[in-house]
Amino acid sequence: MDVCLSSAGGWLEAENEGDLQKDSARGPPGDANKIEPSLHSLQKLVPTDYGSYTQERYRFAGKDIVIQESIESYGAVVWPGATALCQYLEEHTEELNLQDAKILEIGAGPGLVSIVATLLGAQVTATDLPDVLGNLQYNLLKNTLKCTAHLPEVKELVWGEDLEQNFPKSALYYDYVLASDVVYHHYSLDKLLTTMAYLSQPGTVLLWANKFRFSTDYEFLDKFKQVFDATLLAEYPESSVKLFKGILKWD
């Protein structure tokens, strides 16, 4: 059994912070400066205080992945779209050229997709709302520290708000933007579409997996197709998940 977890003891599950920083800098030549700041960004977050957790296990990228979940928050549960997207990434790693690819995940939740993308060699920025980030960073560290070329970064992202300030186009570029089960019956769908479009630049591929539950999901898909050249990449009938590839339309 190949388990990729950090060593036990303390919130960061390591012997001490100094050892964490020292070990995080060990990677391919030239990566130390990328990895250590990511570790610092993960350390500064406060753990989410949920009353009850479960430990769920998943198997992707040749690793056993342990995810701390809680039914107290939509953002602390792995949804069907996430596992479908992980399966696709695993099966198409070489085709997608994920090694060292720059990836941002929208609505990372408990972090499974970001963990799998990191294990497959990508440089990942996992984003979500502030109350989700503590549990997200915990899962990312447990499953990527000391066993990946790049440590994932965690950033707050409120859809449609302060995008240029927090994600300046002049400084950031992503090969892929990932999203899974971010579309359901809520009132921020227009802001979500705005955010998807903002983060996409020439050459960026958006991969969106979603379980289609409500009429609003299909209404969003119609709007998505107005903004993106959309291709249905895969369907998972057992979970009602569809996976789309989106390339932003340019005037």
Rank of each mutant, 00 (worst) to 15 (best):
Y173G: 02
D217C: 15
E90D: 07
G81F: 11
L243Q: 13
L243E: 07
D31T: 15
G246P: 00
E36L: 15
F212E: 08
E161P: 03
G27L: 06
G121A: 04
Q99F: 01
V78P: 14
G107S: 14
K34A: 14
C147D: 03
E94V: 15
E235H: 01
E238T: 14
K34C: 11
Y88P: 00
Q201K: 07
T127F: 10
E56V: 08
S24V: 03
Q68K: 15
V113Q: 03
Y176G: 00
H92L: 00
T148K: 00
A61I: 05
F60C: 07
K223S: 03
I247H: 02
F167G: 13
C147G: 03
A76S: 15
N97S: 12
V113D: 04
Y174P: 03
D2A: 09
W250V: 10
V78Y: 03
T194G: 04
L119C: 02
L207Q: 01
Y187S: 13
L20Y: 12
P80A: 15
T125Y: 12
K22P: 09
V116M: 06
C86T: 04
P80Q: 06
T144V: 02
K102T: 14
K102S: 02
Q43S: 10
Q201V: 05
L45D: 00
A122F: 04
W208S: 01
G30V: 00
Y58G: 04
K34R: 13
V132T: 12
A25F: 08
V77Y: 05
T148C: 14
T204R: 05
H186A: 06
A76K: 09
E164W: 09
E238I: 10
H186F: 05
Y198S: 04
K155Q: 13
T83L: 06
H150G: 01
Q68C: 11
D128R: 13
A179E: 01
L45S: 04
D64L: 12
V132G: 04
L136C: 09
L163F: 06
D131N: 06
G203F: 01
K142H: 12
A61C: 07
A76Q: 06
N139M: 14
T195L: 07
